[in-house]
Amino acid sequence: MNIFDRIMSFDRRWIFLSLAIVCVVTFMWPFHVPITLSNEVRSIYNRFDSLKEGDMIYLSVDYDPNALAELHPTTYVLAEMCFRKNVKVIFGTLSNLGQGMVDQVIDDITDSVMLDKTYNGVFYEGREIQNGIDYVFLGYKPYPAMVIQAMGLDFRVPFPTDYYGTPLDSIPIMKGVKNFDQCKLVMDMAAGNVAEMWITYGHGNYNVPLALAVTGVMGADMYPYLNSGQIFGLAAGLLGSAQIEKLCDNPGRAIDGMRIQLFAHILIILFIIMGNIGFFVTRRRKKMGGDVR
């Protein structure tokens, strides 16, 4: 029995073992993996990067815990990037479990900055992130299409007060902010058809510069909108989140996840290639009349 026969009659438990080792090791050991950047994600970063101090953007957090793994990292990174650059952020959600998501993002970042003056390695010198000054959270309202249309008229129409019950007019950063016209861009993190509503109503009616971060499954369906220029950027799935983390130089869960995925995939592909080599070699020998056992 030579090596190729061995490959062909290989106990699958070796595959299990090597996969488990690869996953656990890559999980525990935070080494660097190259992440290739796609243009559609890079254009999101470039827009964010070109924002100046005092600019305002709208982050729409339209997912629930089911899509947390894929989209949460993006929200964290983009929110943090804006805070760092002193860009004002309006948070809103059109998913009824999205409030918990936004709460978590805001709490994690502000608490960390308050206690240690850092967040994920970024140092905030003598600064705190304050509700009403650095960000505002509008909260949740049902019927996404209606809410988007109403916000295009004025944020105060669907959201007379913010999530915490403060009237929008008495919030410092909302002074002089009426609707999307004052926002430099809208970024929508979406799991579900809300993404299409933003395209139809947000971009279609009010021509807002729109970018999307969607789940991996939805990614493929969104490319047509990118080609037609209805959205200026697209980050799909864990891969998109990891690219954003890399671009913003703020590595977190998405890059961790990507590392494991990447090596697990490579391992599986290697096994497939090995199987094929073994298969071809043994088949050729069979054709030549060799002894195959």
Binding site: G237, G257, Q261, A264
Partner: peptide, 17 residues
């Protein structure tokens, strides 16, 4: 589907960790 299935295992590792 491979990608999603791997993350199921990663979740279990996370729970154990």
């Amino acid at each position: 589907t491979v990608m999603g299935r791997i993350s199921l295992f990663v979740q279990r590792i996370q729970v154990m960790r």
